[in-house]
Design a protein around this nucleic acid. Sequence first.
DNA 1: CGAGTTCTTGACTCGCCTCAATTTGAGTGG
DNA 2: CCACTCAAATTGAGGCGAGTCAAGAACTCG
Lengths: 240, 240
Amino acid sequence: MPFRKALSFDSPAPCDTCPILEDSLCLPLPEKQRNGVRCMARGRLVPQGQPIFEEGEEVGFFASILTGVVKLFRAVPGKPAQIVTFLYPPQFLGYTSGDVHRYSAAATTEVELCIYPRSDFHSMLEESGGLRRKMLEKTDQDLELAREWVVMLSRKSSYQRVAGIIAIFAQRTQRKAGTNLRFFLPVSRADLAAYLGMTLETVSRNITILRQKRLIELRSTREVVVPHIESLLAEADMLN
Amino acid sequence: MPFRKALSFDSPAPCDTCPILEDSLCLPLPEKQRNGVRCMARGRLVPQGQPIFEEGEEVGFFASILTGVVKLFRAVPGKPAQIVTFLYPPQFLGYTSGDVHRYSAAATTEVELCIYPRSDFHSMLEESGGLRRKMLEKTDQDLELAREWVVMLSRKSSYQRVAGIIAIFAQRTQRKAGTNLRFFLPVSRADLAAYLGMTLETVSRNITILRQKRLIELRSTREVVVPHIESLLAEADMLN
DNA sequence: CGAGTTCTTGACTCGCCTCAATTTGAGTGG
DNA sequence: CCACTCAAATTGAGGCGAGTCAAGAACTCG
């Protein structure tokens, strides 16, 4: 796969092996336009930790996430940055109606992107009603998530938030249905703290408590086993 | 105005006197479809405090807000509800891609709505690309607001949040540009607290502090004068 | 003018942050 | 493979901001 090797330069979009085809932006397009997208799209591999775009920067491109996890965050003067969301495949990255990015984005794991130059994407959006429908759907989901997070941040204790985020990651990385999930945390404690709106120390303490209560096990600092996801969700008051 | 008198029953949409025409959903529609909307839309007057729809309820209609202020909130077991956003004209209310409302909505002031039955609106959305563009734009704005609020809630002190929300209300209700804004708070202290994610007492205390610092004046509990909006914004760390 | 609601103020408590010290883990070179 | 180094994570002690509980003041409406 030549795509995998291209670290600094973009390659042709890897449409033949697209990992998110079922839920991609391309699928709703008619054949002709899909080929148009194929032409304008580029593949890009972003190493772990690397920035993708910065808050305040002019919007140059949008992107679909093919693999990996991206964090979207806002710097806050005098305080640690606030992570606003973690984005997984097949989510869309960087869309704004404005000209300027309101948040910074960076790769928390190695990330594969499918890049669309801004102007190309906008004219595509003008032409295709199906694309617009898809974008509306995705934006609506993001809105729902952001509002969930507002509730999470202001009405839950630090313990509940930590329990909750681990349960969320567990479910997202879930291989098969059923209990006893084992997965790899794609983010550091510092990133968890920045997402949960608390300090790294408090995250750590609560993880310890969860471990003592046997609600989670740690194989290593990043490798988590959740013996019973419902218990964990209950702890976070997230059943229903 | 017959519309104003209709409290319990819906009236024909008051399109001739539509207060939000410039930024309405109707404007982007071609003449023919606009008449279609006229047919399906109904006016509704909701008294202060009345619910508009409830979380968990099946989505029956969407609505544009013509006048007044609506709160969108989520009940949290064992705690006060969390208000997720306040909606002003010409914002759109209740849109979800799902079948069920995820939040409750209620009128914080008397509210005039323009109601669209769900199925009619959906088929309209299928037909009109312009409408879809408008909806995408609005949803994107809402997303932006929700994410702003995530940052507000998790990175600002209670004092900053109170200063910030008053500044926001001041700017929104602003008659004319310039300093020395005077306006009417459209919400109770309890609603402020539910929005800011804190207690009513803490809201009150911080208002007192702002008053002592001469950053605001209270003519009555709900009538606020902001002598110098920039100072207030600075206090909330919201300049730039 | 009273009765109920809404708002303010006070005293006390507790959860989370701060600062600081270890401990663990990952990467490097001998 | 092990010692060394640096970053990441855990653990501890102490302080402060915001919550809780409770009283009193100020509005609103009949």
